[in-house]
Each structure stands twice: as C-alpha cells, then as structure tokens.
Write a protein that binds this DNA or RNA. Structure first.
Lengths: 229, 229
DNA sequence: GAATTTTTTGACCGATCGGTCAATATAGGT
DNA sequence: ACCTATATTGACCGATCGGTCAAAAAATTC
C-alpha cells in the first residue's frame, strides 16, 4: 500500500470515478437532476448501469458530489480583496476570472444553472450561507470604495450580480449565443473581445477611476478593442 | 359540428386549456422537458393524466405550444427603433422592458432558459433564424449610433447580450438571488433599484449621451438611487 | 496456490414514464 | 325524447426509471 494514505483510492478506481463524474456532469447539466438517467450516464462512460451505482452509491450521491466538486473549483478562485485594493484591477480581475472559469468548466457551470432553475433544492444551504457571506463581505468593501470616492455609489449587490450574469451568460446560454452568431463555438478572439467589452462598460459605468499605472498587469492594454468614441 | 371552424373553442375548453398551460409551464420550467412528467402537471391542475393528453395531444405538443406562446409574448415587445432614435431612451426602454417582461412571465422565462440549457433542441431554428435576424438588425443600428458619435464603439452584439443576461438573471436565478438577499422574493423597490442601476451602468458605460430632456418620461428621475460619486 | 477482497455484470424488483383505448357521462341540437 | 358530438376517466400497454442482489471474474494478500 506504499503508505501514501490520505483519501486513498487505487489509481485505477480514481480514473474510473473521474470518467463517471465527467459523463454525469454532461448529462445532469443538459437535463437537470430529474431529467438525467443513470442509463444515459452509463452509456456515455461505456459501463453497465450497475457499475455506476457501485462506484457512486446512488443518483443523489453522484449529483451532490458533482455540486460539491463545482463549489470547490469555484472557491479556489475567490481571491482576497481589501478596501485598499484598487477597484479597477479588482473588478477587472473578477470579470476576467469569471469569464475564464465558465470556459474551463462549462458543464459544471450549466449544472449549477440547472440546479438553481429547479429551485436550488440541494443548494439552498450554500446560497443562504457561504455564498451569502461572500457577497456581503465583498459588498461592504465596494461600499467603502464608493465612500472613498473611488467609484460611483452603486448598489454593490447589483454590481456583483451584473458581473455574475454577464459572464455566465456565455457558458450557460452557449446554445443561444452560437445559434445567433452562427458559429459552433466562441473563438479565443471572441472571448477576449467580450472580456474587453465587459471591462470597458462595467468599469466606466461604475465611474471607476483608471487603475494606478504602476500595476503589475502583464496582460497588455485591456482596451485594445473597445475604443472610446 | 356547428361549422364554426377556425380556432374557436368553447369558453370552458379554453379555460381548461389555459389552466393546463399554466401548470405545465411551472413543471417544465423547473425540471426541463425530460424531467417533467405529465402526472406532475395533471396533479397540479387536479385532472386525471388522460385528460391532459386529451387536450394537448402529447407531451411534446404541449411543450412546443408553451415555447411558441412564450415566443409570441416576447415578440409583442420588440419595438421598432431607427438610427434617428435616441440611444439613451431606446437602451433605457430596452432594459426596463426586459426587466418587466421577466417579472410578468417568470415561468415562461425559466422555460426558455431550461430549453437552451438542454441545447435548444426545439429552438435551434428560432435562434438561428428569427432571433438572429432581430439581433443583426439592432446591431446595425447601434453601429450607426457609434459612427454618429452618439456612443462608444462597442460591439453591439455583446451589448445586446449584456442587457439580455443582466435582466434575465433576476427571473431565472430568482432562487439564487433571494437566497443571497435572504428574502423570499424581490420587492417593487428592489426592481426599481435594479433597473436604475442597470440603466446607469450600461448607458454610462457605453458613453451614451444623456437623452434629450424633452423626453416623455413620466417615471420621475431614473437616477434617484445610483448617484455619481 | 489458497484465501480473501474488490470489481464486474446480468437479472430482476416495484414504481413511474408517455401514451392508448374503450366504456361512460355530459351537453347541445332538433 | 332522441341523436350526436364532446368530455371524462380508469384500466392497461411496453418501456424505462433508480436500485438490489447474487454469482462470476479479477485482483490482491499471505
């Protein structure tokens, strides 16, 4: 057993479980909890249905495991900000990070969306607890920025929801977006163009003073696309 | 057969069908097409399951009827705009209209969202056709506005998607929003506050020159809440 | 190589799925 | 009253649902 310990699992088992999770994420995100079936997941992995239950225990256990996995990935990105931070860089980072996150885990994001559409039966605790605290703390800081004259006195909660919705739109409504654009998927250029646009509109719209030029941003000029009139 | 023909229906039949549509809209929006069952709908209406099929023909027919109904309601609101229109009032109207629409038909909006999450199997024609044309025509006008110096040279498509997502967020993610706000539902004040915020940020963010003051807005000052720094 | 544990899999369970059908009840026209 | 068209409903169909189980197979341990 080589004593590697921790939550040990044989590497083969871990590989199988991962492949199941990937397949399940697709199916649940497309059809929701009720609409997904273990048979569809099993077919996608290429395993008999009984095997899914052997590894995951039950449909519900598999589902909440996926939700937790997605929440964990989400938490990894919740950087710390303080009232002394520069609003421009923080908001800009927030927008771009959320944008990247949605592209990295499109199925997980859709899974979340479907869960919330269904009334968040498995996530109500998380929404009213952890996530709520996260929003309040960020809101408090944004309020201080407004008080310090660093930006307009907008309601921080609506601002957070705005960034949230605007970025997630491109992953959860990818079918709509690509249908309208007449393209199968968004290109790298699209994503950069969208990010620049959101950065431009939201920062300018909130009256955020341009970031201190002594910034450590190696990302070239962010306003390469959207130019002022 | 009384030869009345056409779409006439006895008033009692129409009442029953409407009640079925209302119930079905709730169930489909929560659980998606696959996750919804005729039995759940029947229970909600208080009718035997066979009756639902008698009036609606099949699950799929009921579903597409709901989608079409929602598309019709949506089209009623697609006002006409021209390059001569004032960008500020048009964008402001667009934001507020979408906001009201989502509040008026929350279940229908969620139904759309679930359909698109599932990959829009029943709506791909609509998205790549009617809706796509609508977006292109509006985009062309917005581009003219930019060329005329009435606003920044932002990508019109991203702007449309921004307004789209930001407003719909509050109906489709109502479970998340109310969970975070710690409230059961959004109040009238919330909605006005959100609308004002979006108006403020998006118009200012796009560099839209303030509307001609000879506007017919009886809605008091829109910037009552969000104040400049 | 025997013993033991882990994995695989088809068969099967009761419940529910969308949908059909025939028997019955109701309503409207004459 | 009679006839016809519409509406109502329980019973039923094959398919699929989530989940169980036991027997066989494979891997692991000693």
């Amino acid at each position: 057993m080589t004593a590697v310990s921790a939550t040990h699992e044989s590497p083969s088992r871990e590989r199988i479980e991962t492949s199941i999770l990937v397949a399940a994420e697709e199916v649940f995100s497309q059809h929701g909890y009720r609409g997904a079936s273990l048979q569809m997941i099993a077919d996608r992995v290429g395993l008999p249905k009984a095997n899914i239950l052997y590894y995951m225990g039950s449909k519900q256990a598999l589902y909440v495991r996926l939700l937790n996995r997605m929440m964990r990935r989400w938490n990894e990105v919740l950087e710390d900000i303080t009232p002394d931070s520069d609003p421009a860089t923080v908001l800009s980072d927030f927008i771009r990070t959320k944008m990247v996150l949605g592209q990295r885990y499109p199925e997980g994001s859709k899974l979340f969306a479907a869960e919330i559409l269904a009334g968040a039966p498995f996530l109500s605790d998380y929404l009213g607890g952890e996530l709520r605290d996260w929003v309040s703390s960020r809101a408090a800081i944004i309020r201080q920025w407004s008080a310090q004259g660093k930006m307009d006195a907008v309601d921080p909660r609506w601002l957070i929801f705005l960034i949230w919705s605007a970025t997630q739109h491109y992953t959860e409504y990818s079918a709509q977006v690509s249908g309208i654009l007449g393209r199968d998927a968004l290109t790298e250029d699209d994503l950069e163009s969208i990010s620049s646009f959101l950065e431009h509109v939201i920062l300018k719209g909130c009256g955020v003073t341009s970031p201190a030029p002594n910034n450590s941003a190696p990302k070239s000029s962010a306003d390469a696309h959207s130019v002022e009139k």
